[in-house]
Amino acid sequence: MDETEPVMMRATCRTDPDVCPVSGQTFTVPMHPNAAPPIFRAQCDQCGQLVTDLVPV
């Protein structure tokens, strides 16, 4: 199996700021594409919610 190169993405947690201490902050992270949609998936390390605001760098 070939390993794909990671894609640099900007991930921003959009959870309620009263719930997540990093809500609204953007982090640049390397992400590997998944075989099935959604192609990129992320989870906030602070609140555990799915991050839906993902933008390629």
Rank of each mutant, 00 (worst) to 15 (best):
M1S: 08
M1C: 03
D2E: 14
E3Y: 13
T4R: 14
T4H: 08
T4M: 13
T4L: 14
T4S: 11
E5V: 04
V7Q: 12
M8P: 00
M8F: 06
M8V: 07
M8T: 12
A11T: 11
T12M: 10
T12W: 06
T12K: 08
T12N: 00
C13V: 13
C13I: 14
C13N: 03
C13H: 08
R14Q: 15
R14D: 12
T15Y: 04
D16P: 07
D16C: 09
P17F: 13
V19I: 15
V19G: 01
C20D: 10
C20I: 12
C20G: 05
C20T: 06
C20W: 06
P21A: 07
P21E: 10
P21Q: 06
S23E: 04
S23P: 03
S23V: 04
G24F: 01
G24P: 10
G24D: 08
Q25I: 06
T26F: 04
F27P: 00
F27R: 13
T28L: 11
V29E: 13
V29F: 02
V29K: 12
P30T: 10
M31K: 14
M31A: 09
P33Q: 01
P33Y: 02
P33M: 04
A36M: 05
A36Y: 08
P37T: 09
P37K: 06
P37H: 05
P38V: 11
P38C: 03
P38Q: 03
I39K: 13
I39D: 09
I39S: 10
I39P: 02
F40I: 02
F40G: 05
R41D: 03
R41V: 10
R41G: 07
Q43F: 07
Q43T: 15
D45S: 13
Q46W: 09
Q46D: 11
Q46H: 10
C47Q: 05
C47T: 02
G48H: 13
G48D: 09
L50S: 07
L50I: 09
L50T: 13
V51F: 00
V51A: 01
T52W: 02
T52R: 04
D53H: 14
V55N: 02
P56V: 14
P56G: 04
